[in-house]
Simulated scan of single mutants.
Amino acid sequence: MKKKVLFSREEMARLCVEALKSRGVEIDEIAKIAYQQQARYTSNIRFETCRESVLKILSLRDIFHHVLLAVELDRMAEQKLFRGPIQDIIEQDLGLFGVDEVLGLDVARLYGVIGMTNFGDIDVNKHGIVSRLNEDGKKEGIVHTFLDDIVGAIAAAASTRVAQVINEDIAHEEPHKAISLFD
């Protein structure tokens, strides 16, 4: 009998949380980055809204696949399971590698250009848990080459989702009269 490969949204979110925890990442740490990023633009933002957004994003199939792949690639590099130069490239998180950022951008792009811009900010400025993962990844025997980018991308997507939720709430507070594209 084949193993299960399709999971419900609840299962995917739970498995993502477990995978992240196995690498020392808590959901609240990701939500904190999203909160700090959005708090610059919205004064009445709630931390719980950011946390809910992180969990919602972790329930998406593409994100589930990205998280599990990132965790597994880093684990494999720690165990030196790759051959040739790619082992050293991943293990040392070579600055010119870029494949880790591609995975991060793929996650962030689910929330459009703003999601990708938010990811760029997090990736360059290493906010919160992303900074710790990046620094820990420089220690002997620890690899976070893919994880730091995936975590940053989840935070970026959550930040963007929060902005969308807040703007949708505002739009409902201020209904517009019937408008036309030609007004």
Rank of each mutant, 00 (worst) to 15 (best):
Asn118Phe: 12
Ala39Tyr: 12
Gly98Met: 01
Glu48Asp: 13
Glu135Thr: 14
Tyr35Asp: 03
Ser159Pro: 02
Arg83Gln: 13
Cys50Leu: 06
Arg23Ser: 05
Leu68Thr: 11
Phe97Pro: 11
Glu173Ser: 13
Glu78Phe: 04
Gly95Pro: 13
Phe97Ile: 03
Ile142Cys: 08
Gln37Gly: 02
Glu29Ala: 12
Asp106Tyr: 02
Val143Lys: 00
Ser53Pro: 11
Asp136Ala: 15
Glu72Val: 06
Gly84Cys: 02
Ile27Tyr: 03
Tyr35Val: 02
Phe182Tyr: 05
Ile33Val: 09
Phe47Thr: 03
Val143Glu: 06
Gly84Val: 00
Thr160Lys: 03
Leu15Ile: 08
Glu29Ser: 15
Glu52Leu: 13
Tyr41Val: 13
Leu181Ser: 03
Asp28Met: 07
Lys32Cys: 07
Val5Gly: 05
Arg83Lys: 10
Met116Thr: 15
Arg46Tyr: 07
Gln92Ala: 15
Ala31Pro: 00
Ile33Cys: 03
Gln36Asn: 13
Gly120Cys: 11
Cys16Met: 01
Ala163Val: 03
Tyr41Glu: 12
His65Ser: 14
His66Gly: 02
Lys139Thr: 12
Leu73Asn: 03
Ile154Ala: 05
Phe119Gln: 07
Leu133Trp: 05
Arg61Trp: 09
Leu147Phe: 09
Ile90Val: 15
Val17Asn: 09
Asp148Cys: 11
Ile142Tyr: 01
Asp149Asn: 15
Asp106Pro: 06
Gln92Ser: 15
Glu52Asn: 15
Gly120Gln: 10
Lys32Ile: 06
Leu147His: 03
Gly128Gln: 02
Leu55Cys: 05
Gly98Asp: 07
Arg75Asn: 07
Gly120Asn: 10
Glu10Cys: 02
Lys21Met: 09
Glu174Cys: 13
Ile45Lys: 06
Gln87Ile: 02
Val107Ile: 08
Ile30Leu: 04
Ile89Arg: 08
Ile129Thr: 03
Gly84Asp: 09
Val124Gly: 10
Glu52His: 13
Gly24Leu: 01
Ser180Lys: 15
Gln87His: 05
Glu173Lys: 10
Leu6Asp: 12
Glu26Ser: 07
Val99Met: 15
Arg109Asn: 13
Ala153Arg: 00
Ile89Val: 14
Asp62His: 11
Val5Ile: 14
Asp100Cys: 02
Val99Phe: 11
Leu69Arg: 07
Glu48Trp: 00
Asn44Tyr: 07
His65Arg: 14
His66Leu: 10
Ile90Met: 05
Val67Arg: 04
